[in-house]
Write a protein that binds this DNA or RNA. Structure first.
Lengths: 137, 137
DNA sequence: CTTTACATTGACGTAAACGTAAAGTTGCTT
DNA sequence: AAGCAACTTTACGTTTACGTCAATGTAAAG
């Protein structure tokens, strides 16, 4: 679904990046206001790096999964913990575990939904079959 | 996670049902305004049946999964198609398939997220280990 | 030097999903 | 009969995640 990035450390203008992910520049600025992105500047203009693009991917996936920006920020925070601070490392591990547990529950719920839809579908198919055979008489 | 229902066809007042699922009466009325629930009335008061409770469960799960009420309505519509109308049955089957595909993609995305978090966690654990062994000298 | 294209920062608007307060039933219970 | 608890409708308020101008800036092209 998502576009493949070139291996070169490319730079993006705001509209380039927005078109790459089918969002509006406004959205990118909004994420910056919320502190989720902090692109460099060339003068006054924003210059997005690979790093920003990757973070954006994470944000957009989070959004597709129904997370709020606040929650997404917490997840992104996991990635920029100070790797020299023991407590921060331990914190990342702990919060990571919690998130993973949460996500596993989500998968369970989705699977339940799938099951129910497929059961419903099976019922409808049976009914259809019965109606059609009755139609043949 | 969700409370177990009694097998008897119990009736619920609006506050009973709201407390059962830890939501407010306002939320139930809102779902009714949106056409997602249509409880019977005893005079002016709402009387929720098992059927309503089950629908509510579906709604709340949908919400936890990040779906909007509009989208949830479409899913609920699958359940009340006229079982004598062939076109409606076929429609349910088709839309059911689409939803299931969508949900499978969601699961994939969640699994990617889990993988990434666990990789991050592994990194942090390695760093922690290194820091601690270095500390022993 | 003036278009033109693309960018910037406000700042107000909007849709969704409720929250919240007001004012009025209704049915007991004391 | 009076009061209280639980319900009702009406309606405006709030939060989130942007949409949508408006006014302005800047840089390359003609």
């Amino acid at each position: 679904m998502s576009a493949k990035p070139p291996p070169r450390p490319k730079l993006y203008s705001i509209t380039e990046l927005s078109e790459l992910y089918d969002i509006t520049p406004r959205t990118l600025r909004h994420y910056e206001d919320r502190g989720l992105l902090s692109p460099n500047r060339r003068g006054q203009q924003r210059l997005y790096q690979e790093r920003d693009r990757v973070r954006l991917q994470l944000i957009l996936r989070g959004r597709r999964l129904g997370f709020g920006l606040k929650e997404i920020e917490e997840m992104l925070d996991l990635y920029d913990a100070d790797p020299t601070e023991i407590t921060q490392l331990e914190d990342v591990i702990r919060r990571g575990d919690l998130k993973v547990e949460e996500l596993r529950v989500q998968i369970q719920e989705i699977q339940s939904l799938i099951t129910e839809i497929m059961e419903l579908k099976a019922k409808m198919e049976q009914r259809l079959a019965r109606i059609k055979t009755a139609h043949k008489n």
